[in-house]
Nucleic acid binder design. Structure first.
Lengths: 218, 218
DNA sequence: GCGTAAGGCTACCCGCCAGTAGGTAGGTGG
DNA sequence: CCACCTACCTACTGGCGGGTAGCCTTACGC
């Protein structure tokens, strides 16, 4: 009998570092997205990655370092996905629409990335929470710029019924919430989701610009 | 010398069970809202409550039980606060407006309750996540009922540009996100916040009902 | 003034898990 | 075939924190 008939379950061996790091990060994102930072154990991550625990420590450092690496990789992916879809020379509403479509496409394709960024990253507290909050704030300001540019173009300043930043915060929240909802309704396309939001938000926003205002009726 | 000149830092002693339970729950909400479920330690909670750890276990059971008690108390508070503000015989838009105002008043007054419910409860997984998701789903359906009642009144059914449930999910998300934003802007009143949202959402929604639809421009 | 029950605490146990020490196996140059 | 390096692993430790055993103390009935 030859010496290879007793090989254990055939685990890939002696792979280059870059490949291992990818495997580990993939596994970490998966486990973190399922259990959250604190409830995730390094043992489970190493299991899923098909790699022993010390590998993780040599390649990617402590648990916190690992989580940071995940967050940054996924955040970069998300931003790149959105930027790839946006066409800067279009009018504000079309820019927003394309951004939204890219966003929903990303969330559908990388649900675990989205879960980690949206749900889990804030629960760690400290530096990561700040990092994420920051990124979100930048997203809000980006949207606010679109909104305000569309607004001032028509001569609307800041007034009681109108705060660009506040409205943008609401809009971003609406987009996120709809993303979560869409995870349970995978048959709805990104175009439809983006359209819903545009119809909800942009029409109302247009009215506001035109000076039409909703007021409590008594 | 009398026997009371060496009293330690004057901790309230021998209080009835109901009072202790309140103290413990208050402390737990505070600590859970700061650190999240897993990172919160029973020792810290007992410290903040001014009570020893075994008290917590005799009165409120395990850590999970305690968290459940927090969630349920705060959820009840929130629902009662909203129901207290809503006037069921008004038209849909005014109902929504009053509900939103009550909601923002609650969030401003009990920020920790809101944080626990919104941020932390989902990270525990299992029964609590389900419970919260469920509550949120009920909130969405409630809003959806308002939206649809206003919609069908004008003869609009389900169509490509219009999904009552989807829009409501977006609306609830917008409301939540604006609540988070408002936590950093405490000078903005609940009435103003609610008005912003009404202007953003209700106007757009009205247009939609009237058959005006936003479409990508090419 | 003495039993006894209920309020309350100190001091401990023990499992889980982040992090590591120290070793083996396969490849490469001489 | 020997020296050495790098990829990789098994097996451990140390501490943190959930949960508890057992004791003290105040109030009250008799």
């Amino acid at each position: 009998m030859s010496e290879d008939d007793q090989r254990p379950p055939e685990r890939a061996r002696r792979l280059p570092r870059a490949v291992r790091e990818r495997q580990i990060l993939d596994a970490a994102v998966q486990v973190f997205s399922r259990h959250g930072y604190h409830a995730a154990s390094m043992d489970e991550i190493s299991d899923v990655a098909g790699v022993s625990k010390p590998m993780i420590y040599t390649y990617l450092g402590s648990k916190e370092d690992l989580f940071g690496a995940c967050i940054r990789r996924e955040a970069t992916r998300l931003l790149e996905a959105i930027q790839a879809g946006v066409k800067p020379d279009l009018p504000p509403d079309m820019q927003l629409w394309h951004g939204l479509r890219s966003f929903y496409r990303f969330v559908a394709e990388y649900r675990e990335s989205w879960t980690v960024l949206h749900r889990q990253a804030l629960t760690v507290g400290g530096a990561f929470a700040a990092e994420i909050t920051d990124m979100r704030a930048r997203a809000i300001q980006l949207v606010a710029a679109l909104v305000v540019s569309a607004g001032t173009r028509k001569g609307v300043g800041e007034q009681a019924e109108f705060s660009g930043e506040g409205l943008s915060a609401a809009l971003v929240g609406a987009a996120e919430s709809l993303a979560d909802w869409a995870l349970d309704h995978p048959d709805i396309s990104d175009g439809v989701l983006a359209s819903w939001l545009m119809n909800l938000v942009w029409l109302g926003f247009n009215d506001l610009i035109e000076g039409e205002v909703w007021k409590p009726s008594e």
